[in-house]
Design a protein around this nucleic acid. Structure first.
Lengths: 127, 127
DNA sequence: CTGAATGCAAAGCCTTTGCATACGG
DNA sequence: CCGTATGCAAAGGCTTTGCATTCAG
């Protein structure tokens, strides 16, 4: 994997995010430093980085894929109103899956867990 | 909400599924009984039914939305190789979220949990 | 009757891909 | 040098939507 300028800056921008941006957000931010970068390159790099395990690709109930600079699987919270995605701190432990009967014969490699609801701001506006 | 022939048959077809079909699968099955139904109608109905809480819309890491005739949130297993989605039996209980600090100020309405890996068949082929 | 639901087709959104060119190691 | 990565633009997959028409209640 080559260490290109594009890849370096994409990763740098992603790492600054606490929210979990989509490719479009990363694209427009990287464009400030590399005005000629193409959206395709952003997609290719985010994909590649998540395959290598450097970042995490989130594919939850949003029509857009989001990216997380932290590569370890961890739970998220998604606001159904504004779409905001937050990390849930403090590794929430899941029941061990290996010994469960449903997992017999399967090879479990990971999990995705998200809680849905309304964030602080949005739950105020709901009332 | 009107009780149209289309809606009735869409629901009937979905209920026969143990796997979790996408709109396209439902469409082609309903077409056998209603050759003139349109894909748009299938989408509109599946959407409507999931909003009413009759069925469940699954939006996990697949580019396609899948539907589950069982309306209660429950964990799933998704095969990374063949895309198959299975229910995980026996309500896997999650840690209660209400008292957690991260949920302060939020209104939590649900969760999505899926395990990923390789199903029986695919894990054999992998070796 | 009347508004909710349908069929049709076009448009939308996000993402992927083919290809010639550029550039990192 | 060589092959990976890029930029560009077009195509792709799934889903949504506008509009005239139909049909359930």
């Amino acid at each position: 994997m080559r260490n290109t300028q594009q890849r370096r800056i994409i990763l740098k921008k992603l790492k600054k995010h606490k929210d979990h941006p989509g490719a479009d957000v990363i694209y427009s931010e990287v464009r400030k430093e590399l005005p000629n970068i193409s959206l395709g390159t952003v997609y290719r790099n985010l994909e590649m980085l998540s395959e290598k395990g450097t970042i995490l690709k989130l594919e939850f109930g949003s029509n857009q894929k989001r990216f997380d600079p932290c590569p370890e699987a961890h739970p998220h919270f998604r606001c159904l109103s504004c779409g905001r995605i937050e990390d849930i701190p403090g590794g929430m432990e899941l029941p061990p899956v290996e010994e469960k009967t449903w997992s017999k014969g399967k090879k479990i490699t990971g999990y995705n867990l998200e809680f849905t609801g309304y964030c602080k701001k949005c739950s105020k506006n709901l009332k």
